[in-house]
Amino acid sequence: MKLQETLEKNQLLDFYRQMFLIRRFEEMSAEQYTLGNIRGFLHLYIGEEAIAVGAINSLLPQDYVVTHYRDHGHALAKGMDPNAVMAELFGKSTGCSKGKGGSMHLFDAEKRFMGGYAIVGGQLPLAVGLALASKYKKEDSLVMCFLGDGAINEGEFHESLNLASLWKLPVIFFVENNLYGMGAAVDQTLVFHDEIYKFARAYKMPTARVDGMDVMKVMEATKKAVESVRGGGGPYLIEAMAYRFRGHSMADPIEYRAKAEEERWKKKDPIVTFNKRFVSEKVATKKELDQLEKEIEEIVENAVKFADESPFPEPDALYEDVYGSK
């Protein structure tokens, strides 16, 4: 199907804009990490942009997103301010979590981005709880919960799928299968690694597998899932096949996978292929796309400038927000 048979031009451009923003944001983060402006763990989303953009754009503003520590892409796709996200990576008081969360713990309650969580599998029970609350309060909001292939090995995955299905809760479990945990390939760690989406069947949950390098396919699969979940069909699982182009984190020398494999996946770069389709299907001219990229460039530059010029938290902030009650 041609792009414009599915979406309007401005929506398509918006997808492109978002994916390109994530890409450039991540590249800039890597740069700032090397400069020492960002510390700790930094997990880049480069290569997986089509998933966040295709999936999250199929949601409504009142829908919740929770995710793992590789969370910048999801945060930006949910509409979070790049300035606040970059400032968070810098540990500044203007960061989305006031500099107290860091890269792995981004939050924006207003945007219903309910967090990046850095304990593998830990976000799933929370997602179930958010969905439970939504159903209990009879709200029309569902929960999209991203997780990696590595999280399938955790008990919390199975506990959460079972309970979500038992109680028919409005939650989409979105597995980003990038074929590796940290340094171990899925086939070294998971018996049923080649068809992860079928785990859902043990919990009588509808499920689908999708090419995570193609934003349109991700969007279509997600739309179906959203429709089913919103219609009261209970939870849904989607497995998106993808690849992270960079190391697990900035600390990863990537010695566990073959260069040839990397090259093969990089040919499917979700942004490059999307760009080519724009031109070949005459959705937009190269000039239009260049202009759009230039605008993104500016947004990212500004985010760094904002983060750089923002103050670090005051010493007293150390003690703030531990408790809500005295």
Partner: peptide
Amino acid sequence: GAGAGAAIA
């Protein structure tokens, strides 16, 4: 965890 999530909501 579901308790925590519902409390957050």
